Amino acid sequence: MAQVESLSDDQVRGIKSLASRCQQHDGAEPFNEETLLSLTKIPGPHLVHFLIGSSDHTIGYAQLTLTDGEANAEMAVDPRYRRQGHGRRLMEDLVSSATNNATVLRLWSHGDGESARRVAESEGFRRSRVLFELGIDSQRIHWPRTWPEGAGDWPTGNGPRLSLPDGMRLRAFEPGNDESELVRVNAAAFAAHPEQGQWTFEDVITREQEEWFDSEGVILAEGPDGVVGFHFTKMIPEDGETPVGEIYVLGIDPEVQGSGLGRILTWAGMGHMAARGAKTITLFVDESNEPAVRLYRSQGFETVRTDVQYSRPLSLPA
């Protein structure tokens, strides 16, 4: 097995091909967005790659990231080569590498697959977090009767009449001008979130360079003193045709939480995506966030996929 700090172009292509094969077999992507973006990041001691196979055919891949004494990882093995010990080899190397730098190792399993559960539990990992992907057919949504100032050509129906708090308006994100404001609001909104709260200026720029990025799909709520909330939407074609819309990030400055702004921004993002052709709208929410789960389910959202995080405590060497 190769352990490397940076990947060649051939290795990146091999890992993406592996991910595609796993998705076709398992019905769920094996890696999250951050893992795929990290394939081409500048190497550093906080990021390690593990590979099984050749540049022509990647059999297995794992990625380990280290932050503030915690290690997070994702891994995948080609469906044709499972039950041959490759998953266990990747797991053992992740544990060995993380033990030198962290006190806990967290591992995501997308789709809550039986194979991943078996390997994780056999290596002493325990289920620690559950993330639901929920989805709804946009034609089942009861769209608002009216939209507030700054709305686009979004669908209307017999739903509520939406209005913003006094002095606020909606507008589209402006690349080159709004990155710092978005990062500021995001950091305040997700101060306690283990992943989202860590977004940097560079993380926003990276997403602006993705093919799916649409500046009009990043909807800002602006008050007299600046941006107070945003809805970052994401549209990706499914099977090359009908796009699926995702409530990607919804951030509200704690100073205005409770004002109803989050509800309005949620509607705004969904309206934008439906107007752009999204037949399905999805979002991710933690199982532990019971009020949000109940709210979305009451609105007609149903479970599309379940992701599970497994955790194992580690002992730093003396």
Rank of each mutant, 00 (worst) to 15 (best):
G135N: 03
D9F: 09
T67Y: 09
S128V: 06
H57L: 14
S38P: 01
L90F: 07
Q24P: 01
P175E: 07
T280F: 02
D9M: 02
E74N: 12
P254N: 05
L131F: 02
G69M: 09
E5W: 03
V12S: 03
A73F: 07
W143E: 03
V228G: 11
Y248P: 08
I236W: 04
Q257N: 01
R161K: 12
V204D: 01
G159S: 05
S6N: 08
S8P: 08
N177F: 04
N72E: 14
G150D: 04
E181L: 08
H142F: 06
V249H: 04
S128N: 11
V227S: 11
G197E: 02
D26L: 11
R21N: 04
V244F: 04
V4W: 00
S128T: 14
D137L: 08
L7C: 02
K234F: 14
D153G: 05
L39I: 10
D68K: 13
S115C: 08
L51M: 07
G258F: 00
R140K: 15
E287M: 10
S315R: 08
M168T: 02
G152Y: 07
I247E: 13
D10A: 14
K234E: 13
K41D: 15
E70C: 07
Q257S: 05
N177G: 00
A151H: 15
A268P: 06
D93W: 00
E210L: 15
E133K: 13
P243I: 09
L36S: 05
K279C: 12
V293W: 09
E121N: 01
D112P: 10
K16C: 11
E5P: 01
E208G: 14
G44D: 15
I141N: 06
N158R: 13
I15R: 04
R305Q: 15
V304T: 09
V204P: 01
V48T: 14
P243Q: 03
L94A: 13
G60K: 06
S163V: 11
G229A: 12
N177M: 10
S38R: 14
R106Y: 11
E210V: 11
G167H: 08
